[in-house]
């Protein structure tokens, strides 16, 4: 097994990988996270990850009524003998888990003061960490950067050695376009990737909301998981007075006399938006996490673990 901390090209780092995000320290910490994940799995928190697809496996899953045309070999005769009901035995089909990372790369994710991490940077780190953990679990990992209503998934990779491939892909991503999560999810589904876990990492600033997208993922058999990134500093505005607010994505201008009261109102509206996200997630049985930018990425990963659903 390759140690990601020692697999970089030393001081200068690996070519094509952003050293400001994915340096040796970062790699050591994700390795540590992977160990923690395996320890949690061995303690019973995680068994072997199986798909919920009913198929040709050997482990009984459930009964269902017989329908004409069904294979009589799967008829449970014992039950028929006791109850004279014709029930068909079903088995779980065991297969590799696919983990998709729908990474929002809209400009709203890239806003940050000079020299400081942006939501986009933090999203890249979280994606890299979760991806490495999935690779360590022999799951199939695929990236699907989304913007402008597009989310074409990359070719899935498998095995820990593919970490650097993922890091290069992440390092090559640039913010751009506009946020359109629902359209991006629809675009993602259009490529009919294998069913699996879909981790949506975004600030979720979408005027159309998130509900439709999550419902579509669930309807297509995916298991969605939402990580909502936010920057609390926006609620600690340093600029007040007569301002023109310019939307970084649409260029829309809003003239405003910004006061602390207005900022408080903004906080209320943002909280309502977050509540709508959680509600939409609960509606489809998905998990939703709100993560502040100030939270270190490893703690974010642990928070994802603790929420269950990622490795469970």
């Amino acid at each position: 097994m390759a140690d990601p901390a020692t697999s970089t090209s030393g001081k200068g780092g690996v070519s094509g990988i952003r050293e400001d995000l994915f340096d040796a320290t970062f790699l050591r910490r994700i390795e540590h996270l992977a160990l923690l994940a395996r320890r949690m799995a061995s303690s019973g928190q995680r068994a072997a990850r199986r798909s919920k697809k009913i198929g040709g496996g050997i482990e009984f899953a459930d009964h269902r009524d017989y329908a004409p045309g069904d294979d009589l070999r799967h008829l449970d005769w014992k039950v028929y003998g006791r109850t004279e009901r014709m029930l068909l035995r079903q088995y779980e089909e065991e297969e590799d888990l696919s983990v998709y990372f729908l990474l929002d790369r809209s400009p709203s994710m890239a806003m940050a003061p000079p020299g400081e991490l942006s939501l986009f940077d933090r999203a890249l780190q979280i994606t890299a960490a979760l991806g490495y953990i999935a690779l360590s679990n022999l799951d199939r990992v695929a990236l699907a950067p989304m913007t402008d209503g597009k989310a074409r998934p990359e070719r899935p990779v498998r095995g820990r050695a593919q970490l650097f491939r993922i890091l290069r892909v992440l390092s090559s991503l640039e913010p751009g376009g506009q946020t359109a999560i629902r359209d991006s999810i629809r675009d993602f589904c259009r490529y009919k990737p294998r069913r699996g876990l879909v981790v949506l990492i975004s600030d979720l600033y979408d005027p159309d909301g998130l509900g439709d997208g999550l419902r579509e993922l669930a309807a297509r058999g995916y298991e969605p998981m939402v990580v909502q990134l936010c920057d609390e500093r926006i609620f600690q505005a340093s600029v007040f007075g007569d301002l023109t607010l310019v939307d970084v994505e649409t260029g829309e201008r809003q003239e405003i006399w910004l006061t602390p009261e207005v900022v408080a109102t903004y906080r209320e509206v943002w909280d309502e938006l977050s509540a709508q996200v959680e509600s939409a997630a609960r509606e489809v049985g998905a998990r939703a996490l709100r993560v502040d930018l100030a939270l270190p990425f490893d703690e974010v990963v642990m928070k994802v673990f603790r929420s269950g659903g990622f490795l469970g």
């Binding site: 400009p107 709203s108 994710m109 806003m111 600030d203 600033y205 005027p207 926006i234 600029v239 007075g241 007569d242 301002l243 023109t244 607010l245 310019v246 939307d247 970084v248 994505e249 649409t250 829309e252 809003q254 003239e255 405003i256 207005v262 109102t265 903004y266 509206v269 943002w270 938006l273």
Partner: peptide, 17 residues
Amino acid sequence: RRRQVAVPFGALWRKVL
């Protein structure tokens, strides 16, 4: 002299206003 400030989510500010 009005300052321009870039914000990530104009629609949200519209609701605020």
